[in-house]
Simulated assay, not measured.
Amino acid sequence: MTTSTQKISDAGVSLWFDDLSRERITTGNLQELIDTKNVVGITTNPTIFAGALSNGESYAEQVKELAAADTSLEDAVFTIMADDVQKACDVFAPIYNSTQGRDGRVSLEVDPGLARDSDGTAEMAKSLAEKVNRENLMIKIPATEQGLEPIAKTLAEGISVNVTLIFSLERYRAVMNAYMIGLEKALENGKNLSKIHSVASFFISRVDSEIDAQLDAIGTEEAKALKGKAGLANARLAYQAFEETFSSERWERLAAAGANVQRPLWASTGTKDPAYPADLYVSQLVAPNTVNTVPAKTLDYFAEHGEVVGDTISGTYDESNKVLNDIEAQGVSYNDVVKKLEDEGIEKFDASWAELLETVKKALVSA
């Protein structure tokens, strides 16, 4: 293990890898990341699958079989994705077992086109869980207003959930509430709460990108001095909300029944601005009971250059509040920013899904 990745793991941060392809699995690269860089989980999305399919020969044989069977486009997409996720789940199974389900997780996303469709999301989440049929699967559900109900419903079925696309502190609190509603219903349904796990994926770099652009447009020295601070401040205040929620009486009752905390997951942790350190959203978001999903370049940089100086979140809440208040005082609306980012996030998810469908369509036609 590298010193940096071991230190951050020892500090209570689970490193999950933000990429999956069949080639990574079959070449042993995924196992190598586990063995050498403390990777203990993996997330994926339509963009990642589209890239894997368009750049690799690993899928050619399966695509030929699907084409020969006259498989529908949607069924082909989910068959290919499910196969990769199953194989990845098997690679991570020893970690899943040794951590009692806390890590060793593989996340698979519902069709992003259902982000505003509560019933459709819940149905697809259940269908994906049945198709993959692995205990260490997590179903990714976007944290739209319409996503809150299916999050709770999916958890009530005993299915573990990765809640994605969270930008605002208000929505994050609603996600934690949905988690507890789901667990309370699961308990009523006779489910074993100790087997249900969840993470809440709080997006970081996109917040800085949007707010930095607005601060640049304002152009004053005071505005420019606040650049690169919003993403960390927002995430740190999310951790404060996490601490408050999971020390409440309501939570203590669930914990007594065997429930696991829903860990904050730092997503979108590759820096977009080259002026910022490549591991900014890794080294500066260290605290117990957190997950960081790292893209390949960020993981490689952190493994070689990262420094871990302990908890970089606890005790920063007053300062973080001041950062967001100072940004608001410059005329940048926090509420407008997070709404814009959620809307754009759904649009990007939809575009990625369309890209994936087109990639598979072309592969089936040419098979």
Rank of each mutant, 00 (worst) to 15 (best):
G158H: 05
L169W: 10
L169I: 13
N136L: 03
D119Y: 15
K153N: 12
I166S: 09
E145Q: 15
N133T: 12
I166W: 07
G158I: 02
P142L: 01
G120W: 00
R171P: 08
S160G: 07
S160H: 04
E130H: 14
K140Y: 10
K140G: 11
P150I: 03
N133K: 14
E157F: 08
V161R: 00
M124A: 06
G147Y: 05
E123D: 15
E157V: 09
K131R: 13
T154D: 05
N136V: 04
F167D: 00
M138I: 14
S168Q: 05
M124E: 09
L155S: 02
T154K: 02
E130G: 14
E149G: 12
K140F: 11
L128C: 00
L165G: 05
I151K: 01
A152K: 07
R134C: 04
V163I: 12
K140I: 11
E123G: 13
A125T: 05
V161P: 03
L114S: 01
G113D: 13
R134H: 08
L114M: 07
A122L: 09
L128V: 01
T144Y: 04
S118F: 03
A143C: 10
I139Q: 01
I151L: 07
D117F: 03
G113L: 12
E145A: 14
L128Y: 00
V163F: 01
Y172I: 05
T164C: 08
D119C: 13
